[in-house]
Amino acid sequence: MAERGWTSPKARLLLLAAGAALSVLAFMTVGLKGGLAFALELRAVRLAALVEVAVAVAVSTVVFQTITGNRILTPSIMGLDALYSLLQALAVFTLGGLGYAMLPATAKFLGEAGLMALLGTALFLPLLSRRGDIPTLLLAGVVLGVLFRSLSLMVARLIDPNEFAIVQSARYADFNTLDATLLVPCLGLTGLGTLLVWRARHVLDVMALGREAAVGLGVAWRRSATALLVLVGALTAASTALVGPVAFLGLLVVALAERTVGTVRHGPLLLGAMLLAVILLVGGQTILAQLLDNVLTLGIVIEFFGGLAFLILITRRRR
């Protein structure tokens, strides 16, 4: 039954892996000058960050879409990354800029990630009752995203203008200036989350059939959905902490992965989405920064193409 040759999912995944490897290679080598060791180390750190963001976004999006029963909604479109900015702004607002800055970065991040996991779950679990009603779910999600973004802007304004700079939330993701202090905890969290999702990939296959079918096949729906949503929240925190809101990146990579890999089984789909995200981020950043001399920022490019992909997906949606 399985396809063979160059059209099989396995071959396509291999192609994607080659593309990702090529992107990584180009990222590390194109336009190198000056002190080689220093430059390489700098690039390696940034590469690790980009890959971490790619994996976190791809995995969290696939999981979120499977639980909510559609391939349009993503954690980021639902405003989960804006929620993270909001939490940060609220922390500065309550602790004061100095107090916030004094806390150790790792502890702060882990606290925020934990809170995100909790809040995200509390927020999205009720929405799952409307799982079949996609237009409502989509619109409520998008408006919720606008609400969170506006709220985080508002809280940022309520903070003393002198401390405003600490939380200045960007409109688009910024892949040029990464917060390196958070790299290690983010990598750890993403690795752990991805491992757990990977082990649950067969459960995800069953959950994709819908609640009734999954329960019929012996999946504890509510418990699984809750646990997975917790992971989605934590993974979103891990990507947002490094680069800010990634908007439509998740939508784009999963939509592309589904069409490239040609299967809806979660094993290949997760791998394909991760690889595509790496190609898009690492390759895109190489092209924009090295070849095109930063005429555009990757964040804006993703917003544009991801937005277009979203529009196409909802106009194509039938019935």
């Binding site: 237009p135 409502t136 989509l138 619109l139 998008v142 408006v143 606008v146 688009y172 908007a247 804006i300 917003e303 544009f304 937005g307 277009l308 979203f310 529009l311 909802i314 106009t315």
Partner: peptide, 18 residues
Amino acid sequence: EPFLVPLFGIVYGGVVGA
């Protein structure tokens, strides 16, 4: 599905904004 029109609008506005 009347909700699709505002949904389309918000994202369309985002694309133009980009």
